[in-house]
């Protein structure tokens, strides 16, 4: 079936597009965790405890950790 047609989805076959897809995915993975971590910390500071900057600081650190963990998890599956 596959061989019958010249058109094929680029991500699955072409290594250039496969790599591009992975790169594009990793970037946002980091960013999103940072947004969530920092955002939760900021919300806790502002609405819950009035605890100055510390909630956001802790939240950002947790966010960075979670982001790196997400990226590691995603990258582990590609090296196989």
């Amino acid at each position: 079936m596959r061989a019958g047609l010249d058109i094929d989805m680029p991500p699955s076959n072409d290594p250039f597009y496969a790599g591009l897809g992975q790169a594009v995915r990793i970037g946002t993975e980091l960013l999103a965790a940072l947004i969530v971590g920092g955002g939760l910390g900021w919300a806790a500071d502002t609405y819950l405890f009035a605890s100055g900057p510390w909630g956001m600081v802790v939240g950002l650190i947790v966010g960075v950790t979670a982001g790196i963990r997400n990226v590691m998890r995603a990258a582990q599956n590609w090296s196989k």
């Binding site: 946002t28 960013l31 999103a32 965790a33 969530v36 971590g37 950790t65 979670a66 982001g67 963990r69």
Partner: peptide
Amino acid sequence: IPIELVSQLARPISLAVR
């Protein structure tokens, strides 16, 4: 648990933002 919670909550955001 906080790290995993954040990484879970990051999923829809990363999907949408990407």
